[in-house]
């Protein structure tokens, strides 16, 4: 098996796929949004709860491949407790990393997603939950 494939399916990714974090419906969310990959039918819903300009809570549910599920799970860990400005910075860094523009400023478990950049077809999978998170923020009632 290729080294690139080993890098794509790191054990952190497989763990998050099997036991996704914050994988639940949120009843008292400030906003939510759906993400859909029409190519494969993968689907995710992200809920956000705001406290002022801070992401007090974030959760998701849905069906998808290991990459999309793990990436959404890592996303919830990365933005929980962050301000809206910090969330935007994290999003931009994630996006730069998976599209091969470097992993500058990437910390923690999110590093495990760096392998995605070698597989352009999987960028969509990895981004699904992230774009839904952004849309949920846009929809959120203050």
């Amino acid at each position: 098996m290729s080294a690139e494939l080993e890098e794509l399916y790191q054990s952190i990714i497989l763990d998050h796929n099997r036991r996704p974090q914050n994988f639940r419906v949120m009843e008292d969310a400030s906003g939510h949004a759906d993400g859909l990959n029409p190519l494969c039918g993968d689907q995710v819903t992200v809920w956000i709860k705001l406290d002022g300009d801070r992401v007090a809570d974030v959760s998701f549910q849905g069906q998808g491949c290991a990459i999309s599920k793990a990436s959404a799970s890592l996303m919830t860990q990365a933005v929980k407790g962050k301000t809206l400005t910090e969330t935007q910075v994290i999003f931009d860094r994630f996006h730069a990393m998976v599209t091969g523009q470097g992993a500058e400023g990437i910390t923690g478990g999110m590093k495990a997603l760096s392998g995605v950049s070698k597989f352009p077809l999987r960028v969509k999978c990895a981004s699904l939950g992230w774009h839904a998170m952004k849309a949920a923020l846009d929809n959120a009632a203050p």
């Binding site: 098996m1 399916y9 190519l39 494969c40 039918g41 290991a66 990459i67 599920k69 999987r122």
Partner: peptide, 21 residues
């Protein structure tokens, strides 16, 4: 195992299959 992940690993062995709906 999601079919996309199957197809990805298969591809690394040169096996082209369709995954999806």
């Amino acid at each position: 195992v999601h079919p996309h992940d199957i197809a990805q690993v298969l591809d690394s062995a040169g096996v082209c299959v369709r995954s999806g709906h």
